[in-house]
């Protein structure tokens, strides 16, 4: 089946079209973000400028379009994403650790955690909003918003750490104990460094998911909007190319994050590779 060259060729062409389908809107958005001041949110291009980027970043004061209120929202989203990624990774690590011991109802616990992403965001937000109304607790992005974000990212952190611990050789921890190190020291000196790539992955995923989250925040996020909520607010009104400029910058930011992650992983891999190099020299 996989040997048929005609089929392979057809599928190859199809894959190209598929990429076009995936990336086409991004490309169009990227081009349109360089519309000049008099250009609209569609073709034709009336020239080429970075006007909308300047407008977005507040370099140009006056404009026919209202500026996107992204500044404070961006700060909130970054702080929130940071809080969420730490909490989610800690919870995910602890819970995955629990799965290393046998216990009854592992299936129940597994799916309880999975519910965090199975239950649609709009329902999670609604439920938390109802409870906070009832208890007269004010909704804030750093309180109720934070809670629902962790519900969403926790399952992903948990899955990453579960996969890491499944491949983890438990005897090194026992070796540490038999050498006299207590549980906390063992975790700090042995377990943590060995599962660090997993922790890094969990941090990255949780950060990205939280940074982009909005269905849960819409009801539970409180009056001060996070970045995605600000953008969602633009859906109802006339859009301008500044939204595209935002899209381009936001996509670049996501990729930058991914690149930082890739570099961090590469450094830890390289460190081991360097060690191997020394060995070769000695031989």
């Amino acid at each position: 089946m996989y040997k048929s060259p005609i089929l392979k060729w057809i599928l190859g062409v199809y894959y190209g079209l598929f990429l076009l389908f995936l990336y086409g809107p991004f490309i169009v958005m990227g081009i349109l973000s360089f519309q000049p001041q008099n250009g609209g949110p569609q073709f034709p291009m009336r020239g080429f400028s970075i006007y909308w980027y300047e407008q977005l970043l507040g370099i140009i004061g006056t404009s026919r379009a209202a500026p996107l209120p992204v500044g404070p929202a961006l700060v909130r989203s970054l702080i929130l994403a940071f809080m969420v990624m730490v909490t989610s990774t800690v919870l995910g690590t602890i819970t995955a650790q629990a799965f290393r011991h046998r216990f009854k109802h592992t299936g129940f616990m597994f799916y309880l955690v999975m519910l965090g992403f199975i239950v649609p965001g709009v329902l999670v937000g609604l439920g938390v909003a109802l409870v906070s109304n009832q208890l007269h607790i004010d909704k804030h992005w750093w309180l109720t918003g934070y809670i629902v974000h962790v519900i969403y990212t926790f399952p992903f952190s948990f899955l990453v750490m579960l996969a890491i611990f499944n491949r983890f050789d438990r005897s090194v921890e026992e070796a540490s104990a038999s050498l006299g190190a207590g549980a906390a020291t063992t975790f700090r000196k042995i377990t943590f460094p060995l599962v660090f790539p997993g922790i890094l992955t969990s941090l990255l995923i949780a950060f990205t998911l939280s940074y982009d989250e909005f269905p849960r925040s819409i009801f539970a996020g409180g009056p001060q909007l996070t970045l995605p909520l600000t953008i969602y607010g633009q859906f109802g009104i006339e859009i301008h190319p500044n939204l595209f400029a935002f899209g381009v910058l936001s996509t670049l930011f996501s990729f930058a994050l991914l690149a930082v992650f890739a570099i961090l992983i590469a450094i830890s891999v390289k460190r081991r590779a360097r060690g191997r190099g020394i060995q070769e020299e000695i031989r």
Binding site: F26, P228, G247
Partner: peptide, 10 residues
């Protein structure tokens, strides 16, 4: 990896 809302807008 990119923003969900940006993908809709695009």
């Amino acid at each position: 990896w990119t923003s969900f809302l940006v993908r809709i807008v695009a």
